[in-house]
Nucleic acid binder design. Structure first.
Lengths: 218, 218
DNA sequence: GTCTATACGTTGATAGAC
DNA sequence: GTCTATCAACGTATAGAC
């Protein structure tokens, strides 16, 4: 009985271990392929090849391409939320904006495929994340808009439209992931080095902070 | 002979007229469908339906999907160039940047599909416009970088990295076309009105100009 | 859990009547 | 120049042996 249940547990764990590791492998490959070709353009065959598993195996773990895509979008959305939280670590506008911009830039650097999948999804009209946009992004955006307006009323920064500011931050930071190929062409066909990327992050912070009337700090 | 050549000319003109108008119809539909689904995801059938012509007819005018796509990209690139020219209408940095940003914003408003096709193309690694990026975009970018550095050395604006500035302008202005769906979700599910869009343009100019140490003007 | 073989729909492209 | 019918290639998904 003990042996049996131990064996069963081991087997179950083993199964879960295999399942989890294979799902991870496939999800990672899917994020990349979906980022390159979009939902329609991506093929389960290409994803399977990228993951190094037979196509039938992919369908064993994710019965349909749409289910796999939705799982990828869930991951991407959860990472967006993680970066978004860095906005709330302080009540000082300069520190908050600088921290948020830096977090977004770091994310664009470390998870470029996630950013691109998001871009692809929005470009096609965001059918898969429509509810997420309404129930998560919009409330987040409205709360932070209030916060910004509070700072503006307190005279801590220029009376800018929070909407324009957020769009500028999102667009600019995500540009470094989404348009990486174009950027490399303008950089002698090399991706930005760590040094160049750190400098870019600093420049983005500087221009935006000064642009909304905030002193450099933090 | 006169009659014959007149008849032939008329027939030729007629043919050309039909060809041009049908090609235009198909190109317009193609720009839209490619913008929504990317090169791989778009189907010639969907494009033909969008254009209101039989699929076989589309293939009569554009023998392959790739040729059609390249024609669409040519159009998109030529429009990019047109907006880029507004940068050179003056030697005053404030006026030049404001004019360029406004032109890009107007283009994002009037030709959103063009912007999205460009974005889709760069997202997949820009195989179709690779040579264009090297022979047109890069030289343009390097020339204007020199111009900006000249202004900086002359003390007319802050010593910002021209690269970061251009990326910010491109990213932000194109965001209004590429992420229009997301923007509408944050705007009570309505597209930005003309008034809102004018305000957004003004805000983008204001933040960026101030951000690089330029006085408002023009 | 793995993988080969395959069913079955879709897509790009063409043939050939009008 | 237009359009129906068609085909080969490719795509998703599954069956069934291991």
């Amino acid at each position: 009985m003990t042996n049996a249940s131990t064996a069963m547990a081991r087997k179950t764990n083993s199964k879960r271990g295999i399942r989890e590791s294979n799902e991870l492998l496939i999800l990672e490959a899917a994020e990349q392929v979906f980022a390159e070709s979009g939902f329609k353009g991506a093929t389960t065959d290409a994803i399977a090849r990228q993951a190094g598993v037979p196509k039938a195996n992919l369908h064993y773990y994710f019965s349909t391409k749409e289910i796999l895509y939705n799982r990828v979008m869930e991951d991407v959305c959860s990472h967006w939320l993680a970066a978004a939280q860095s906005f709330d670590k302080t009540d000082d506008p300069s520190t908050a904006l600088r921290g948020y911009i830096s977090a977004k830039m770091e994310q664009a650097r470390k998870r470029p495929y996630g950013s691109r999948v998001w871009a692809m999804e929005v470009l096609r009209g965001a059918p898969a994340i429509n509810s997420y946009l309404h129930t998560v992004l919009k409330p987040w955006y409205e709360e932070r808009t209030k916060k910004l307006n509070g700072w503006i009323e307190a005279g801590k920064m220029d009376p800018v439209d929070p909407q324009a500011l957020f769009f500028m931050i999102w667009a600019t930071t995500q540009h470094y992931a989404d348009f990486a190929h174009q950027i490399s062409v303008l950089n002698e066909d090399n991706n930005l080095s760590d040094t160049q990327y750190a400098r870019a992050t600093e420049q983005v912070c500087q221009i935006i902070l000064k642009g909304v009337g905030l002193k450099q700090q933090s």
